[in-house]
Write a protein that binds this DNA or RNA. Structure first.
Lengths: 153, 153
DNA sequence: TTCGTCTTCGCAAGGACATTCCGCAGATTC
DNA sequence: GAATCTGCGGAATGTCCTTGCGAAGACGAA
């Protein structure tokens, strides 16, 4: 797989910002003919450098107005404990992000809820039911300052 | 703005998974003629229900392998203090997410870095330079379990 | 019921677009 | 210098997107 040159990066940057423009417009923006642009895009997709395209839905429109950051501690760091916890957390549709962390807590989660009542349900039915959990700490987001899908190139 | 019916949700779900399929294929998947589908999609975009489309770039290809969760405390919660901090943090391209939080810390950030050296640079040049900060706590993600853009519909 | 209105559908047309083939030009190798 | 390789632009063809138009169903008022 060849290295990415400046035009490849321009294509990636453009599609990261506006993932549904036509190939013709993309070609014009990066200074290439449509045919050449189409070939490069095809290469970027097939090589996995661009792994997909996703519509960003307004959480407001979906009525997910509440974002909760959840810190979780487990009863141990054994491989089996971690695996069982991770398999369970993957099933909860409201968990947008989950990372195994260094530091005070074992996992950090980002959970979307419609309102406080909805979060109470998620906490009761999903989070409390996760295996090996010994401590759950929920912090509520008061305001969103930034929410980017990728690093600004 | 009218309510979203089942077909609107199907359009949103489909484009969330595959944001660059043609309108013709989208129409077929949701069981509509291309023209009707195009009109509905236009409405969803103009109303802000679909707020954009983004290519998902392989972090491996971009070499952003490190994800850091940063907790930040400010010297006060005055409106001016918050505004100045937020204006500054918006300028840092490595900050993917920033929320004003309830609880122990004032802000929580998700920062992408290429490696530890890169994070050291970000910490020195950006995070430490943010105004009114009195405490920065960095936690490193050891492994990504979940990273969804939206709630699973 | 019957009429008018509103919404949203499908169909058709023409203009734009995506993709593929082909030839060319510059770089690299032998 | 010839062969090879790579990546470009132009042309062609089949497909797609968009807009205008008429029709069908839902709904309320006379």
């Amino acid at each position: 797989m060849g290295a990415l040159d400046a035009i490849d990066l321009a294509i990636m940057r453009t599609l990261q910002e506006n993932g549904r423009i036509s190939n013709a417009e993309l070609a014009e923006r990066v200074g290439l003919s449509p045919s050449a642009c189409s070939r490069r895009l095809d290469m970027l997709e097939k090589s996995g450098t661009i792994s997909g395209y996703h519509a960003r839905l307004s959480n407001k429109a979906l009525e997910y107005k509440m974002m909760v950051i959840v810190h979780i501690s487990l009863s141990g760091q054994f491989a089996k404990t971690l695996t069982e916890f991770e398999s369970a957390v993957r099933l909860c549709p409201n968990v947008l992000v989950c990372y195994l962390m260094s530091g005070e807590y074992d996992y950090i989660l980002r959970v979307a809820a419609k309102d406080l009542e909805d979060y109470e349900r998620i906490h009761r039915d999903w989070l409390s039911a996760l295996p090996h959990v010994v401590k759950i700490n929920s912090s509520f987001a008061l305001r969103e300052i930034i929410d980017r899908p990728n690093v600004g190139l």
